[in-house]
Design a protein around this nucleic acid. Structure first.
Length: 489
RNA sequence: CGGGACGUAGCGCAGUCCGGUAGCGCACCUGAAUGGGGUUCAGGGGGUCGCGGGUUCAAAUCCCGCCGUCCCGACCA
C-alpha cells in the first residue's frame, strides 16, 4: 500500500529505498510505457518508443555493416515446425501461444505465435540454399515475438516484446563460430558506446544456454540495484537445426553438407537496461544518442515586457539548436513555474536543459544544466551566440560521463570470492549483490547449489581469462576458468 | 501453477465490522495573482461502488457465485 501511495506523490520515490517501485514509477511517469488491458503486455508511449527507434536505427546500420540483410518472416508458424528440434521445443513449448481457430473454423494444424523464428527461417533457408555459392546467408529481422510469461516486468519481461533476430547459415563450423563472436562484439560495442552501459562479455553455462544452441554467448550489464541483466545474446547453433530441417548445400567437391548456423538478438529489454543502469533519485538519465529530446529550452519571465525579450531569445536558441541537428524542445507551457519544469525534464531524463531569463538575455548568455551531474557542478553559463556548439560538446561529455559512472559502479560492484561461506553470506544480503567473480569447475551440480542457496546464477564465463587455474568456489576441485555469478533479472 | 491481499472518479485511498443523500487527496477545467528549483486562492466538471444473483422498505456495506488485478514462491530475452 505504501508503494501505491508513492505513485501519487510529486516526488519520485528514491531509487535507493525501493528499486523495484522506483523503476516502475519512472517508466510510468516519464511516459515511456503504460500497462495495457491485456495481461503481461505493455504499451510503448511516444517517449519510450522514440528511444527504441533511435536505438533500432543505429543498431540496424551496424548489423548491415556486417553483411546481414533485413527480411521479414510471418508471425504464425506451423506448430509442427517447433517440434523438429528436441531441445528447442522443450525450451519454448511451455510459453508458446497457440492459434487453434481462424475464419470461424478450427484449424487443421494449429499455428504458434512465434516465440523466436529459428524454425520458420531455417525452413525457408532449406528452400533457398542449394550450393556453397549461396553461403553465407545472413538474415536479420525486426519483429515482435510472444512468450506467455507468468510474471512480467515492464520492458524486462513482457508477454509480447520487440526485438531484432539475426539468423545466419555458413559453410564451415569456423565461419559460423566467427560470426557468433562478431555479432557478440557488435552488441558489446553498441551497448557500451551508444547506450553507455558497460557489460561483461562471455559464454553461457550449459544450464543458461539457448534451447537448441551448441554455445550461447551474452553481454551482461549490472543495474543500479546490483542485479545483472542479460542485454544481448549470440548463439552458435552448430548443425542442430540444419539436421532437423535438412538445410544442406553441395560443396565444391560436390559433396552434400549440412550448413552451420547462428542466431543473435537484442530486445526492448534494453529500454529497461537504460532506465536501471543510468537512472537516479530524480528520475531518468538518458544517454544523448537515444534521447528523443536532447535539450530543452526553458524560458523564464514574470512580466509581459520580460516575455517580450525572453521568448524571442528562447525561440532563436531553439532554432539554432534544431538547425544544428540537436533534438530540441521549447518548453513555453504557461502557468507552470520554472522550478516545476526543471524537475519535470530532469525526471524525464533530458540530458541538457537550457534556462533563458531576462538576466541571461541582457548578458547574451544562457544557463546550461547537465543531467549527468548535480548541484553547482551541473550548471554553467554559455554564450547564446554559440549555443549549439556548447550543447553539442556537452552532449558528448555527458555520454562519456554516463558510461564512466556506470563503469565505476560495475567495478565497485564486482568482487572476487575464494571461499564459499563468504560468497554465500554476501549474496544472502538484500539487494542485488553485484557480480561475483569466482573460480568454477564447470560442474552443473556446483552451479545448481549456488542457485538454490543464494539465488545467484552463472551470468557469464568471461571470454578474457587470466589463464591461471584455481579451485572451484563450491567443491574445491581444480577449475580452469573464472565465472561471473549474480542475481539476475 | 501453489500461498496471500485487493477491486469505490483518470490515479492513490477512506467509507464495509454496525445497511439509510458517494467522500478525501492528486490530476483535470475556468478565473485571478504568481513565476531563476516541484506557486497560491476562488469556483467547477467527473462515479451503473469489478460482474451476476440473493436477503431487505432500503445494499458500496450482509450472503452466494463468477471475473479480474497485484504481491510472495517454481520457469524465462
Amino acid at each position: 500500500m505504501a508503494e501505491k501511495q508513492k505513485q501519487n506523490e510529486k516526488k519520485v520515490p528514491p531509487r535507493s529505498e525501493d528499486f523495484a517501485a522506483w523503476y516502475n514509477d519512472i517508466c510510468l511517469r516519464a511516459e515511456l510505457a503504460d500497462y495495457s488491458p491485456v495481461r503481461g503486455c505493455i504499451v510503448f508511449r511516444p517517449d519510450g518508443f522514440a528511444i527504441w527507434e533511435e536505438l533500432r536505427d543505429e543498431l540496424d546500420r551496424r548489423i548491415k555493416q556486417t553483411g546481414a540483410r533485413n527480411a521479414y518472416f510471418p508471425l504464425f508458424i506451423p506448430q509442427s515446425f517447433l517440434q523438429k528440434e528436441s531441445q528447442h521445443v522443450e525450451g519454448f513449448a511451455p510459453e508458446v501461444a497457440v492459434v487453434t481457430h481462424g475464419g470461424g473454423k478450427e484449424l487443421e494444424e494449429p499455428l504458434i505465435v512465434r516465440p523466436t523464428s529459428e524454425t520458420i527461417i531455417h525452413h525457408m533457408m532449406t528452400q533457398w540454399i542449394q550450393s556453397h555459392r549461396d553461403l553465407p546467408m545472413m538474415l536479420n529481422q525486426w519483429a515482435n515475438v510472444v512468450r506467455w510469461e507468468m510474471r512480467t516486468r515492464m520492458f524486462l519481461r513482457t508477454a509480447e516484446f520487440l526485438w531484432q533476430e539475426g539468423h545466419t547459415a555458413h559453410a564451415t563450423r569456423e565461419e559460423a563460430e566467427r560470426e557468433t563472436l562478431t555479432m557478440l562484439e557488435v552488441y558489446r560495442k553498441f551497448v557500451e558506446e551508444y547506450l553507455a552501459i558497460p557489460v561483461v562479455v562471455g559464454r553461457k553455462s550449459a544450464a543458461e544456454r539457448f534451447p537448441g544452441a551448441v554455445e550461447t554467448y551474452a553481454i551482461e550489464g549490472l543495474m543500479g540495484d546490483g542485479r545483472a541483466l542479460q542485454c544481448g545474446t549470440s548463439h552458435f547453433l552448430g548443425q542442430n537445426f540444419s539436421k532437423a530441417f535438412e538445410t544442406r548445400y553441395l560443396d565444391d567437391q560436390n559433396q552434400l553438407q549440412y550448413v552451420w548456423q547462428t542466431s543473435w538478438g537484442v530486445s526492448t529489454r534494453l529500454l529497461g537496461a537504460i532506465v536501471m543502469a543510468h537512472g537516479d533519485d530524480q528520475g531518468l538519465r538518458l544517454p544523448p544518442p537515444v534521447a528523443s529530446t536532447q535539450t530543452v529550452v526553458v524560458p523564464i519571465f514574470r512580466k509581459p515586457e520580460e516575455a517580450a525579450v525572453v521568448l524571442p531569445a528562447a525561440r532563436a536558441a531553439f532554432d539554432a539548436l534544431t538547425h544544428a541537428g540537436i533534438r530540441t524542445r521549447l518548453d513555453d507551457r504557461e502557468g507552470l513555474t520554472p522550478g516545476f519544469k526543471f524537475n519535470d525534464w530532469e525526471m524525464r531524463g533530458v540530458p541538457v536543459r537550457i534556462e533563458i531569463g531576462p538576466r541571461d538575455v541582457a548578458s547574451g548568455e544562457a544557463v546550461l544544466a547537465r543531467r549527468d551531474k548535480s548541484g553547482v557542478e551541473a550548471k554553467s553559463k554559455k554564450p547564446l551566440a554559440s549555443i549549439a556548439d556548447s550543447v553539442k560538446a556537452m552532449l558528448a561529455e555527458i555520454q562519456q560521463s554516463l558510461f564512466a559512472q556506470a563503469k565505476a559502479a560495475m567495478v565497485a560492484n564486482t568482487r572476487q570470492f575464494d571461499d564459499y561461506a563468504s560468497f554465500k553470506k554476501h549474496m544472502e544480503g538484500s539487494g542485488g549483490g553485484g557480480f561475483a567473480d569466482v573460480y568454477w569447475c564447470g560442474n552443473p551440480v556446483c552451479e545448481t547449489r549456488i542457485r538454490e542457496e543464494t539465488k545467484a546464477t552463472c551470468r557469464v564465463i568471461p571470454l578474457e581469462q587470466s589463464g591461471t587455474a584455481g579451485k572451484c568456489l563450491v567443491c574445491g576441485e581444480s577449475a580452469s576458468e573464472r565465472a561471473y555469478f549474480a542475481k539476475a533479472y
